[in-house]
Each structure stands twice: as C-alpha cells, then as structure tokens.
Amino acid sequence: MTRKSAVASASRVTRRTTLQMLAGTAAGALLPAFHVDAAPLKYELRPQKLDDGIWLIAGAQEAITATNGGAIANVVIFDTTAGAVIVDTGPSKRYGEQLSAVARELTGKDIARVYLTHIHPDHVFGNQAFDPVTIAATAEVAKGLKEMGEGYADAMYRTAGDWMRGTELVLPKTTIKSGVEDFGNRRIRMLAMRGHTDSDLVLFDERSGFLIASDLVFIDRAPTTPNANLEHWRIALANLGGIPHRRLIPGHGPAEDSARGIEDTRNWLGTVEDVIRSAFEKGLDVTEAIALPLPAWTDRIKLARYEYERSVMHLYPKLEAEKLPNVGKRS
C-alpha cells in the first residue's frame, strides 16, 4: 500500500466512522423526543363521588383542544344492582376505554346501560368501548349521528388531534323514548326534550333525586348553539325548573343544588338573542355583530366571547333568511 492510498483509505474509514457517529448522535438525540411524542396520551379521569353510588367525571370548562383531548363534557356513573349505568361516553375511543375501566372499578360490575344525551361529539365518541346494545339513545339522536357522525369525526381529529387515534363512531343499538328504566335498586326516568339540539335526553334518578340536565344546562360556561332552537330550549328550561330535584348535574359545569344553572342558561340565551336581534335590526353584517360588546354580567361566564361569536354565525343566517323582506326575483 502506497502512502497515498493509505491516506485515502484512512480518510474513507474516518468519513464512514464520522457518519456512523453522526447517525448514532442523531438517533440518540431523536429517540427520547420520539418517545415523548409517542407515549400514549392518557386522560386524567377523576370521579367525584356526589352521593351513594353516583360519580361525576367533570369535563374541563374549555373549548375542545389538542391539550384537553376533547374531555370537556360531564360524564355520570351510577352503581345499580343491574350494573354500571353511564351517561355519555366522552370524546374519543381512548376516553371511552378509560371510562369503561373506571366504571367497572367503581361499581365492581359490568356496564348495564350507556345513555347518550345528544349528538354532540364531546359526548358520543367514546362509544367504541361499549357493547352497542347497551348504548341507548332516542331515534332522533341515532339518526343525527348517522348524518353528522363523519363530519364530527373530521372536526374532532382536527381540533383534538392525536387523542382521537383509532376513534370511529359507533351507533347506539337501543332506541329509547320518554319513560322509566328499572335497574333494580335504581329507577331512572328518561325525559326526551329538545332545544340545545333536536333531541336532548334528560335523566332523573328517583332514588337520589338527581337530575341530569344534559347540555340543556351549562353552569359557569357559555352554552353552545350549533344545533339550537332557542324557543324550544327556553321551553325545556321551564320544564326542567318544574321538576323537583335534589341536585342538578349540567352537561358542562359543577353539580349544584340550586336553580342557578337553569337561570344562567336562560339568561345567556336571552342575552345572546337580544344582542343578535338588535344587531340585525340595525343592519349590521356578521363581523360587525360579532364585534359588539356583551353585558357585564357575562364576564364571569367562561368562553363567553368565544361562544357568542359562534352563536352569531349559527343564528344570523337564519334571521336573514326569515326576516329580510322579499324584494325581487328572476326577470
């Protein structure tokens, strides 16, 4: 080997070694980061015991984000002689699986019944973790999910991101109407109402006197209106107020023994409707209506501006279609 080729060979070795070292460094640097990203996301489900055999898993009082994984709605678990009864399944497959495990652990029993209160995605995408025959909803909810499910799944993947991995919509296989279901030591009264959506299921546990108001009631968090009919909603709130109950569990917010939730929700809807109607009557367009101030009392309501902005976009087109006078046609 000449000196020259020895040098060449040495430099080859050096280059290869360097590349190997680089590769090692890169992998070394990347692996831990990759691990962190790939670590399975886990919801922190903290069941709050409200009464003998009743737990609330409170949702975050936030919009759906990739941080909270869409766990923003309340979920309720009952212990009954027939098994665990669950109200709403949360935003994702992962949430549903964790919920199922928590319910089994708390009750020491299988899942007897899963109620879906309404079609919104933060309440139904945990269905996958449950036997579809145990999942009960009104015919309107089943129909709505069939129509909207795909769109909701898209929206959830976009906003909640990786938390949604593997999530697919499972439709309920049991259709319910207003009536009573008997689980042995607990009779649960089902009340099919509407207003927040076309079909909102309210549940009343006769034993405890607990009223699960679904998303017809929001406490300390602004109500959402993408499928709302405000007139129906107000009637539903009046009906809810007429049901004697010991404690009310809203769809979003804390469980309380006062009428505050019903009143706040009614006031919010009235405020939003007033602001929007007066904007429309002044000739404002959507962006201008969105910019209007809200009354001071709404300052204590979480997501007030956010939900008001959404509500303008939900309600304004309906007002325009209904209220602008006819002025012309094809010529």
Binding site: K282, L324, V327, G328
Partner: peptide, 10 residues
C-alpha cells in the same frame, strides 16, 4: 327559488 331576493335599507 333561485334568484329570489330579500333586502332592506337603513
């Protein structure tokens, strides 16, 4: 319904 117009002036 195509072409039906609604409007108002302020």
């Amino acid at each position: 319904t195509v072409g039906l117009a609604q409007g108002r002036a302020w």
